[in-house]
Amino acid sequence: MKIKVISFLICLTLLSCKKEFSSPELEKHFTESQVEDLNKIRLFFINDIINLDINNFHKNFINEVEKMEASGSPYIPKKKIDSVLSSISADTFNEIWEKHIDSTQFKDKIYNYLLPKYQGKYQIFLADISKKNKAVNHYYQRMNNSGDFNRLSMLGYIKEHPKEFDLKNVNIQILLAIQYISVLRDPFN
């Protein structure tokens, strides 16, 4: 009897931990393994790019991004970002991004960049959460209309709409992770 109760509590704990890093919107649009991949991307962004942890992210994110942008929004080496991108499934990657290469614009360099996947699961996910969030809707509309990630500072959106860009919300954290990984990935390395 005690073993059954302990087993039940362990299962309940493990399930609740998994749900903590998900949301109804994520579960609606992505498979369980894709949600796990999105969380790899989110944690990579929080831990390795912003150098924070999940417990202090919402308190320190704005300060860290201001520092990063004050230094000229440096690119993050493509190899560093590609290491996490190669750890997720191709299926997940292809629901978020399209790879583009342009060699004509830069004579001796190849410009290798990421665009949002048109009508991929990620864009549909953003469309869904934008129905309840005006700031995300504005962001989504700009991305959808241009076919590219907005290269302007996300801080403007966040500072203008701090309640709608709740940094504790996993959906917002994933949006920020994908945005920053997409625009800060060095297109030449």
Rank of each mutant, 00 (worst) to 15 (best):
I81D: 09
D108S: 11
K121F: 00
E69N: 01
W97D: 09
L114N: 04
T104E: 15
T104S: 14
Y139I: 08
V136S: 05
N137F: 14
F93N: 06
Y118E: 15
G120A: 02
I96D: 01
K117C: 00
S71M: 13
K131F: 05
I124F: 05
F125C: 05
T92E: 00
T92W: 05
S87K: 10
Y122I: 02
A70I: 04
K109A: 14
Y118A: 13
Y75C: 06
I81N: 07
K109W: 12
T104R: 12
F106A: 11
D128L: 00
T92M: 06
L85R: 01
I129Y: 00
N133Q: 07
F93V: 12
D102H: 09
I110F: 08
S71I: 07
S86H: 11
V136N: 00
D128H: 08
A127G: 15
E69Y: 11
S130W: 04
S86R: 10
Y111N: 14
I110M: 13
H100E: 15
I76F: 01
K109G: 04
K78R: 15
Q119Y: 11
N137Y: 13
K78A: 15
N137R: 11
E69S: 06
L114Q: 03
Q123V: 07
S130R: 03
K132Y: 10
F93M: 05
I81H: 01
I124T: 12
T104P: 01
K121Q: 10
K117D: 09
I76V: 15
S86L: 10
Y140V: 06
D91R: 06
I124Y: 10
F93W: 08
L115A: 14
Y75D: 03
D91W: 00
D102Y: 03
P77E: 12
P77L: 14
L126P: 02
S87W: 03
F125Q: 02
T104G: 11
